[in-house]
Structure formats: C-alpha cells, structure tokens
Design a protein around this nucleic acid. Sequence first.
DNA 1: CTGGGGAAGGGGCCC
DNA 2: CGGGCCCCTTCCCCA
Length: 535
Amino acid sequence: MANCMIFHTQIASIMEILANAAVAEICKLVDDDYAVFRLEITQSQKENRGLRRKLQLLELKVARERAERTIRERGLASSVKILDRCRGITRGEGHLTGGHRSFVKPTGHNAWRDDQPITVDEGSGTSTQHVIVIESADAEAAGPGVKLERSEGEADPQHSRNIHTGAVAGVEPLVVMEDLATAAAPQTRTGRSITEVSGTLNAVLKSETDTETLTVTQRLLHTGSDNRSDPKRLGQERLGCPTAPGSEYLLYGIPSLRKVHSYRDPDDALETGNDLSSSYPTETGLERQTDLSRGDWNRYSSSVHSEGCLDKQGVVIDEVTVKVEGDAPLTWNVDETHLGEQYSQGRYFLDYRESLETNPNDVTHSPLEAVRNRNPVSTSMRPSDSHSGVLFDQVLNSNDRARAQAQGGGATSGNSKEKRFLCMFCNKGFSCPQKAEIHNRVHTGVKSFSCTQCHMRFSQSGNLKRHQRVHTGEKPFSCTQCQMRFAQAGHLKRHQRVHTGEKPYSCPQCEKRFSHQHHLKMHLNVHTGERPFRE
DNA sequence: CTGGGGAAGGGGCCC
DNA sequence: CGGGCCCCTTCCCCA
C-alpha cells in the first residue's frame, strides 16, 4: 500500500514536471512568435507611415500646384490661402504611385476649410477629377455618423478612399476637383468643377450598411438610407470623384440614365409629390420621371477608383458609381436617388455634354486596364448619350478591343458591328448604348428605379413594374388548367409544366429529366458527389 | 413548386 | 430610314 502511495506520488511529480516543461515550452514558442509578430507589425506600420506621408506630400504638392495654377487663371485667391496653409507638406519627391487623387488631409490641417473648394489643374490632359481630402485623423473626429474606416495599413497610395461627402461644419472633407478640360472651356468648367459640398455629414458620410467590408482599402462612403428622410439634402451634395494621377486611361463614358427614378419614401412622396425631380410616373401612379438634365446622374458620384473619374481627352466624368465586386460585396448600394441634385441643375449636365463633344475622340487608352487592375468603377455618364455610346465604343475600339475579343470575355465575338457597344467591365457587347448602359448597372450597382411602397430598388423599370405587383397583389397570369394565378408570365409558363408533364431539363449524364432547372441542378450533385440528391 | 428578382433581348414608337 | 428610348418579354437564379 505504501509503495503504491509512493508510486502515485512519483507519478504525480513526474506529471507536474512534464506539464511545467510543456507550459514553459509553449510560453517560449509564444513569446518567440509574438516577438517576431511584433517586429513585423512594427515594420509594417513604419512602412505604412512612410508611404502615407509620402502620399500626402505628393498629393498635396500636386494639388497645390494645380490649385495655384487654377487660381492664377481664375482668380480664386481664397483657395490659394487655403493651399498655402498646407505648403509645409506640399513638397515631396517622387511621383504619384497610386491611382487616386484622393489624399489625406493631415491631422490638424483643418485650416482647409471644408467649404473651400480647391480646383486642381493638371498640367496636361483634359480631365475632370475630383479629389477628396480626407481627414487623416480619427474618423470620429469627422463627426458623428462618419465612418472613414481608416485602417493603419491603408497607407498604400493606391489604396485611397474617396468619400462621397457632404459638408459638416469644420470638418467635412474637402472636395477637390480637377478640371483639366479647361482647354475647351476653362471658365465654365471652373465654375462647375469647384463645387461646394454642403449638407449634413451625418446624412452623407454614412455607409449604406455598417457591415460592408471592402478587402481593398479603397473605400467609398456614401449616403445611407437616412438620406431618404432628408429631402433637403437633395441637390446639396457634390460628389467627389478622385482620379488616378498616374492613370493615362480615358475614363470610358458609360451611358447613364436618361431618366432617374428617385427613391422616396411613401411619406416623402406624398409630401413632395410635386417635386419633379423625385418621382416618375408608372402605371401605378407612384412615380414620375426625372430627367437627367437635372443632373441626377451625378448622384452616383461615389468612387472607389480614381480612374473612374479620369477624363483624359475631354470626356468629363464627374460622377462615378462604384460597385465593388469580388471580395468587396456591394453592400453599400448608393442611395443614388438623393445625391447631387445640386449638381444636376442642368448646368453640369449640359457642361458635361459639352465636354463630351469637345473631344470625343482621341482615345488612345482603354480604361479596361485600369478596371482590370483595380476594382471596377463605373462612371455614370450622361445616360444614353450618343457620345457616350460612341466613346464607349471607341474606348474598346482602340487597344483593348482586340484584346477583349481575344479574351472572349464578352459578346464581342461574332458580329461586332451588331454589338459594338461594349461593357467596360466585362467586354460584353450590346447593339445599342442603352442596352450597354442597362447592362452597366450590373457592375455599377445603380438601381434607379425605386419602389415607393417599399425600399426595393431596381436597375430596370420593367423589374420595378413587375415588383409592384407584389404590393398590388395583381396576378394577371392565370392557369387555364387550374385556378392558379401568377404575377409573372414566366411563372405561369413554368407552372403549366405541372399539367403538361413537360420536363425540359435533362441530366447530361443520365436519363433523368426534370421539370425544374433547380431540380436538375440538385440532381447533378449525384454525379459530382457533392451532395446526394433525393427524389 | 412557387415567389421574387436579375439580366438581357425584341420590338414598337418617336424624332 | 436610322437611332434613341422605352416597354415588354423571356430566361434564369435563388429562397
């Protein structure tokens, strides 16, 4: 018995020793890894700081030079003062490495009054670019509701963030627009490009969703749903559209919306029913159309990529709509219906057209490259503008058309004459610019047609019309075999297979047939082994 | 199987 | 007559 006790005691001691040794070993490993990790983090942070600093210097330098030039030309002395305050950091070496005009407004440089627009001119080229100065300080400093979501590792020059912003007293981001199309119409363009951003930051600098995550640091903040409740904001926002200084690609003109159908809450619709800019007619009498001459197409001025705003050859793309694809889900549907009506007061619209007409040609580079290299950006150009369509075509007619066709990524194959309007994102071809514009909404996320009875939005008017049957309960398609009724013709057609026994979907690997494609799809898992299919 | 929505093509109307 | 614009239809996907 005593031996047994001793034995157990020894065992316990050995176990304890082993445990201690294991713990010590683990701690050592953790410490080592932690030290390495800390070192890496420190190095990364240092690099980030250096890059950020460099970016600031370069951006400010460029901005200042351009602004001074512009000011000289246009006598905007106030802007000079503004920029002079940042003179201390405007000089830098190197060149812009990123593709963005957006630059960080250094902390403490609030001397840049937010209501002081800065016009930045580029020495050459003709582009209209919107540079947004972003507070580098804590996003919270920008005021409540502002989500800059800046991260420490965001110093990459190519990872800039464009904030679609309104103004907030004292801290609203400064929108700097570069108007480089001055050769054609310097004065008028200046007036357009220098845009004062005003409004409520809360309403403007708010992501559509708080959960949106962009894997890239390029980020666009846009108006949230609360915009809807603030009709006064309509027309008060000028959306900045940063551009890539180094980009030499022409920003393609994607035909935008001829008509913009504004979302409006039912209450708002009632209250502002006479607002021609906010509704459009449908068979349900819920909407009225808004002509883009009012500039509604400018609503989509959020941008993730500066390229989207670069207008190299006289094509002025003031507004950019961005749909982040891939790793960056489009969770921030632009509340396009409430943006930039100020901008839309015809003038900008017409000017835009002028700019288009100024130099519609001269396209030597395709934005495809930029699009490929970066996240897609769409520019909401004038809707269905013939120039847009031509430009649309021209862009791809230049260097990338052959590539696009070679890639076979779109509908460019076959009769390219029939489908000569190509999507800048996927190269798909369309027979007319309107089709291309509609398709482009797939990439831009533009949904101009809003249901007045719910918050649903649609990229196509027909889809909205169809959707509204959900509210009306209308089911115009009735089955002749039974009492079933359907709101969609396709549903009726599909349903009738129940009666006909038609099974149009056949498995390519066996003899089984299905009446619904979904069933076939599930069945295919039997062959792929992904998941058993039970019938 | 149904409901709802996304996307694209077809075709008519107008200028 | 051609292009732009718009509506409708259709197919498809997903829940």
